[in-house]
Design a protein around this nucleic acid. Structure first.
Ligand SMILES: NC(=O)c1ccc[n+]([C@@H]2O[C@H](COP(=O)([O-])OP(=O)(O)OC[C@H]3O[C@@H](n4cnc5c(N)ncnc54)[C@H](O)[C@@H]3O)[C@@H](O)[C@H]2O)c1
Ligand SMILES: NC(=O)c1ccc[n+]([C@@H]2O[C@H](COP(=O)([O-])OP(=O)(O)OC[C@H]3O[C@@H](n4cnc5c(N)ncnc54)[C@H](O)[C@@H]3O)[C@@H](O)[C@H]2O)c1
Lengths: 207, 207
DNA sequence: GTGAAACTGTGATTTAATTAACAATATTTC
DNA sequence: GAAATATTGTTAATTAAATCACAGTTTCAC
């Protein structure tokens, strides 16, 4: 049974706060505390936690360590998943640098590009392969997720290669919407739209 | 009257496709064509367009140029809005470089940092100011939107400065959720969550 | 010019997501 | 140890978003 998309997002966010709590020595947390950390309500938090079937010790709040672990059981794959970054320009490089070394079940283990100045170089410890070796490398390294940061005009073509190579999830940072096979999960991550949305609501509340 | 959030997002996306169409010399477009470009349905497109009160010439589809203009009337502010990037690290630099020069009503006109190696330097034509001049510069340059790309541990503090300085919209790229005054619009743009969400659905469809 | 075909615009309906309401349970106070 | 308090888990109600269904136009074919 698949959780609602918004719940999955919130669980990921909760987990990060919970890890923070743990560092601060907090062992238990109430639904309303978690809610306050995340612009939402205590009921919403409890509902999300209900979805994953965890129950707290009544009246004491949720056991932080346990909750982290249960969320992990839901979100993480047992052995983690391998990730590739496609297009190592400004954004691709920023992302790669950022993610590498983060303790996580998602490991960026390869990047791809077509620029000969980048190919075979190592960026933040991750090797850059030529795009035409995509299928091979995806296979041998068991990569299932791609982060797309190629220029807009090669996005469609590259996305087809990705599907062909056996990628099962795509996080698309390019500004053009993609079409992938129905068994491939696609998330469009659109900065321009986000910025325009902020601008719209700023404009509207000014009036 | 305020449009639903999702509709605003889609309008921004439609506009980009429409601009593309224009370049390709397409003068009219049907709802189902626009839908196909954006993983959604013709009815959804028509409903969104109905929201903004535009009507097509029956049976010919929407006039591309007109529709772009009407969406612009809804989304854009008359004179555009000024934007600042706070924290010019890897991500801040990538974003600044990307946005500058894009024909748009949203202009990145300043960046801020605390690192003396960055302050007073010009990045992609945009000057970097010291953070302690935030209020002054926001005032004199009439900046209303901030893109936050500072390290997580200074995010909360910086967000307070932003609100204090009179910023009205924040696009937050840091991994910790912020709390801003109720009249400030905040969008959390969370890459880790997005990636974890992709991973979850990949994991689930594998089974 | 008449009938069929192709689209749009929108009221009605359905589905999904959120919020309200409250019983059940544990804890504290006196 | 009874009453008051705080918190969870869940059913029911509400609200928001998406989809269906179809009437109303325009165009096209003949
Ligand atoms: N930088 C941003 O903040 C930002 C914001 C919004 C959207 N985007 C989108 O993200 C993408 C990347 O942006 P960027 O600023 O990093 O651009 P960039 O030009 O700095 O990087 C693009 C990289 O992709 C490589 N590349 C080109 N064709 C390729 C191919 N067919 N296969 C693999 N690699 C290829 C290039 O060699 C380069 O290294 C663009 O599509 C852009 O629209 C970026
Ligand atoms: N790079 C990514 O792909 C990525 C992904 C997810 C989240 N993020 C988040 O985005 C933020 C920036 O990431 P990054 O990779 O660019 O980091 P970075 O370390 O490269 O850049 C941070 C910049 O902020 C500046 N800074 C530090 N304190 C500041 C302050 N108080 N005021 C203004 N500027 C200050 C630093 O001098 C530096 O220039 C981080 O919060 C990170 O969690 C980044």
């Amino acid at each position: 049974m698949m959780l609602p998309e918004r719940t999955v997002e919130r669980l990921s966010e909760y987990r990060r706060s919970l890890l923070q709590c743990l560092e601060e020595g907090k062992t238990h947390i109430y639904s309303h505390e978690l809610a306050e950390l995340h612009h939402n309500t205590a009921v919403q938090v409890r509902r999300d936690i209900m979805f994953i079937g965890y129950t707290s010790m009544q009246r004491k709040g949720y056991d932080v360590r346990e909750l982290i672990s249960v969320i992990g059981d839901i979100l993480d794959s047992e052995k983690g998943l391998n990730v590739a970054v496609i297009g190592v320009g400004n954004l691709g490089r920023a992302i790669t640098t950022y993610f590498v070394g983060k303790r996580s079940r998602l490991n960026i283990i390869a990047t791809f590009d077509v620029d000969h100045n980048k190919i075979d170089r190592v960026i933040s410890g991750v090797k850059c392969y030529p795009l035409n070796r995509l299928k091979e490398v995806v296979g041998t390294h068991n990569i299932s997720i791609a982060i797309m940061t190629v220029p807009a005009d090669s996005a469609v073509e590259v996305s087809e290669h990705l599907v062909e190579a056996g990628i099962k999830g795509v996080l698309n940072f390019t500004t053009i919407p993609l079409n992938v096979a129905p068994d491939v999960y696609l998330d469009e991550f659109d900065m321009i739209t986000s910025l325009e949305k902020v601008a719209y609501f700023v404009k509207m509340t000014k009036k």
